[in-house]
């Protein structure tokens, strides 16, 4: 589907308090277009607590429950159970959380909701930091990235949330990137039609958090995929398919770009290049990405 074919329907209405170039706003528009009016959204503490606008106003034209940081998945279980008793299978429950609320503080509740089969879509918009609190490291922050709590660069690699979720064997798991809004739309739309727990993670490059110009959000989302720093895939009933350029990279039909192409555009990695190149850490990052792609290939049965 081309962007021009997306529905004109909008439930992201004027009044948003998002930063200019905000990837979460872009992703929310796609989610609202894909699901439509009949949805209930549950939002834990994250940037969207601000993006949605301040009381008594709202910038979302759908019912929304704000909930505590670690509680999105559990509260969604409650909403879904209540809808079940009312026979409202026409309403989609969406938990919409950042990487902090997903990878870290909300991981237990998320795992619980998946294990007990809650009928909902859990969407993590991953900007790889605690951004609402002002750019602190999260479990999703990549190795060597500057944050206010990793001033010399993070010393650990990020965890693979997609793999953690896959271990729950839920009907649908997908990774996408706001660089490809049509991919976001398609995956959300597909998840909507599946009963049971669904997980979608959207890479969400954050201009103030990653230190790049607000006009470059989509480009940063694309480069992450082209360099292999992020992969587009979907897993339906344990069967994995890579999508878009990730599929080409996986099958060797496209060589992934050097990760430097993505890193050097972001101020958070500036210390890897200035005052001099940090060859050691740059190599560690490349090696880590190579390791991940070897793993991806093994998932689909491609040797090497």
């Amino acid at each position: 589907m081309a962007i021009k074919d997306l529905p004109l329907e909008e439930h992201y209405i004027p009044g948003s308090a998002a930063c200019p170039g905000c990837p979460a706003s872009m992703a929310l528009r796609m989610v609202f277009k894909a699901i439509g009016k009949k949805m209930i959204m549950v939002v834990p503490a994250c940037c969207t607590s601000v993006i949605e606008s301040l009381h008594p106003y709202t910038s979302f034209d759908i019912p929304l429950l704000n909930i505590a940081f670690e509680a999105a998945a559990a509260a969604s279980s409650g909403v879904a159970a209540a809808l079940e008793t009312m026979g409202r299978d026409d309403i989609t429950v969406v938990a919409w959380a950042g990487d902090g609320g997903t990878y870290d503080i909300g991981l237990q509740a998320l795992s619980g909701a998946f294990e007990r089969g809650t009928n909902f879509i859990y969407i993590c918009y991953n900007n790889q930091i605690y951004s609402n609190t002002g750019i602190q490291r999260s479990g999703a922050t990549p190795y060597a990235a500057w944050t206010t709590t990793t001033v010399g660069g993070k010393t650990e690699f990020r965890k693979e949330m997609g793999e953690i979720v896959q271990a729950h064997h839920i009907p649908y798991v997908a990774q996408t990137s706001i660089g490809y809004p049509e991919d976001v739309y398609r995956k959300v739309k597909k998840a909507k039609e599946i009963k049971g727990p669904k997980y979608i993670e959207i890479l969400a490059p954050c201009p103030p958090g990653w230190r790049f110009d607000m006009s470059k959000t989509a480009e940063m989302g694309k480069l992450a995929v082209e360099t292999g720093a992020w992969a587009l895939y979907e897993v339906e009933n344990d069967k994995i398919t890579f999508n878009g350029k990730s599929k080409l990279i996986l099958e060797g039909k496209m060589k992934r770009k050097p990760v430097e192409d993505w890193l050097k555009l972001q101020g958070r990695f500036r210390h890897l290049f200035v005052p001099e190149r940090d060859e050691k850490r740059l190599k560690e990052i490349e090696d880590h990405i190579d390791m991940l792609w070897r793993r991806y290939r093994s998932w689909v049965g491609i040797e090497k």
Partner: peptide, 19 residues
């Protein structure tokens, strides 16, 4: 709902009651 903790128990109750 057989939740995985009491924090989630109350969170689920809040979600349900909010409907």
């Amino acid at each position: 709902i057989c939740v995985e903790s009491e924090h989630s128990a109350m969170s689920a109750c809040i979600g349900a009651s909010a409907t």
